[in-house]
Simulated assay, not measured.
Amino acid sequence: MCASYGLDPRFTDAELLAEADAEILAGLRDWAQQNDGETLRPTGKNLRNLNPLIVSGDGEAALEAAWWGYLVDGQPAKFPSINTRSERLQQRPGGLRTRAIVPTTGWFEMRKPERVWHEFTLGKGVLFGMAAVAQRGRTPDGEWVTCYSIVMRPAPEHLAELHDRMPVLIPTAFAHDWLNAEADREIIDEALLAAASLDERVTATARETDAAAKGDADQLF
């Protein structure tokens, strides 16, 4: 389960969109600087943060602030919704109607039973994208926002000893298709194949348990 990730404003290499949009990158850097290095975590009753999300607006990539996790009847969903299994989307492709990309410089997972946090990246300072599915939801304040859930897949062998699952990463060349292609079984199958091309680049670094990495998802809702 991915329950936290980072967005370092010092990112130097952007592997997010095939044609890097200067406005989107500037918006991400500005948001990350204002976030002051805080870890991005699910939105819920204890945290009302909105996180940057890349969506498709008339076929063009756009940046907007979004709620991590689903909203149901004006309240955070009572079922787990911050992550969605790729296998479920393969079985029920209707959940792929609206898709998005989550920009990040690394996500965090705890290795058990040692309870040691690790940060997973594509390299120091590299900005990349994680696949997400999205839907509209009404906040407790009555506002309508985009809600998102990060798509997860089984981890490759060299990472599985640290954590058995990982986000579906979206290579730059596949970003447009992920955002705009028809919602069917084929698009999630293609996403998994594209994500596998990045497997060997993913590395994990142990880090001290601190405010940037710790946090139990059960405490966020």
Rank of each mutant, 00 (worst) to 15 (best):
C2H: 07
A3M: 09
G6S: 15
D8I: 07
P9W: 00
L16G: 02
A18F: 13
A18S: 15
A18K: 15
A20Y: 05
A22Q: 08
L28V: 12
L28P: 03
R29W: 02
A32L: 02
Q34T: 12
T39H: 06
P42N: 00
T43L: 05
G44V: 10
K45C: 03
N46R: 15
L50V: 06
L50K: 10
L53H: 05
G59K: 10
E60H: 12
E64H: 06
A66P: 04
A66C: 04
W68H: 02
Y70S: 00
Q75A: 03
P76D: 01
F79Y: 14
T84E: 04
Q91M: 11
Q91S: 13
P93Q: 04
G95C: 07
G95L: 11
R97A: 13
R97W: 06
V102Y: 02
T104F: 08
M110L: 14
R111L: 07
P113C: 09
W117L: 06
V126I: 13
L127Q: 00
F128Q: 03
F128E: 05
A132Y: 05
V133M: 10
Q135T: 12
G137E: 07
T139P: 02
P140N: 09
P140C: 05
G142P: 06
G142V: 10
E143A: 14
W144G: 04
C147A: 04
C147P: 02
V151F: 01
M152R: 05
P156M: 11
P156H: 07
D164G: 09
D164E: 15
P171C: 03
A175S: 15
A175N: 00
A175T: 08
H176K: 12
W178E: 06
A183R: 13
D184Y: 07
E186C: 02
A194K: 10
S197P: 01
D199M: 05
T205I: 09
A206K: 11
T209P: 08
D210A: 13
A213N: 14
K214I: 11
L220W: 13
F221A: 11
